[in-house]
């Protein structure tokens, strides 16, 4: 538990919206972050990633206080719904930037890029431009970058929302495989109850800027006492 993600009495006000988070997320597990739109899911993720700084409270990742740390100093990798790749740079460069942000790459680094691409089934895509890839391929390239970064935490903001259902399924499987290999801590924002069941070990439900429920996934999915959650689960 100690090396997971901890939000300790975190408070944040953005405009008129207030957020209060207080939770511990276990290390090495996949935690789904759910809730209605505008509830604060993305803000939650932004706090962990460092794009928002809390007004009060502390954030710890792997027992280290990262509250005041710049996003680049936090041990996290990111995958968004879209625009994960710089459209004007080829795939190898995009992944290489994950290893070294000035693109000073050694030969082993280049090899690591090719291996990562191979792992996500994109062998030989090094010199392709993102625009020539399908949506699923682009997300897999983003996974490859997360792989070469070797960060203990992977944050994902609705990574499969732009993909069609069949593709979502196979991408979820890939994610599970990669997670088993690396043993990293995964936080995934999703509004798809099926995805929660398919992917997550734990789930939290956020509404109006607060965590209403945090539970192991079986318990979470059978929960019917919270109206907002019940509505979310019924789709």
């Amino acid at each position: 538990m100690a090396d997971g993600i901890v939000l300790e009495k975190v408070e944040l006000k953005l405009g008129t919206k207030e957020f209060r988070f207080d939770c511990r997320l276990s290390a090495g597990a996949v935690t789904a972050v759910t809730g209605p739109s505008g509830s604060g899911k993305s803000t939650f993720l932004n706090l962990v990633a460092g794009f928002e700084t809390p007004d009060r409270g502390r954030i710890l990742i792997a027992s280290e206080d990262v509250t005041e740390k710049h996003p680049s100093e936090r041990p996290v990798s990111l995958v968004f719904q879209d625009n994960n790749l710089f459209a004007h740079l080829d795939i190898a460069t995009n992944i290489g930037l994950g290893i070294n942000p000035s693109l000073k790459l050694s030969d082993p680094d280049r090899k690591a890029i090719s291996q990562a691409l191979e792992r996500v089934d994109l062998s030989g895509f090094e010199t392709r431009m993102p625009g020539t890839l399908s949506g699923g391929e682009r997300q897999r390239a983003a996974f490859a970058r997360a792989l070469v970064r070797r960060k203990p935490v992977l944050l994902m903001d609705e990574p499969f929302a732009a993909l069609d259902p069949g593709l979502r399924f196979s991408m979820a499987n890939l994610l599970i495989d990669l997670h088993r290999e690396t043993g990293n801590t995964v936080l995934i924002v999703t509004h798809d109850p099926d995805e929660v069941g398919r992917l997550a070990d734990h789930a939290i439900f956020i509404d109006h800027g607060q965590i209403l429920l945090q539970a192991p996934v079986e318990e979470f999915l059978s929960q019917r006492d919270i109206p907002a959650l019940a509505e979310f689960l019924s789709g």
Binding site: A49, G50, F51, H70, P71, S72, E73, R74, V76, S77, L78, F80, D82, N83, N84, F86, L97, G98, P101, S102, L103
Partner: peptide, 15 residues
């Protein structure tokens, strides 16, 4: 996302 990514990747101003 470009700005989120670049800061998360730790790009310096020149990068």
């Amino acid at each position: 996302e470009y700005w989120l990514l670049s800061s998360s990747l730790g790009m310096k101003p020149f990068s």
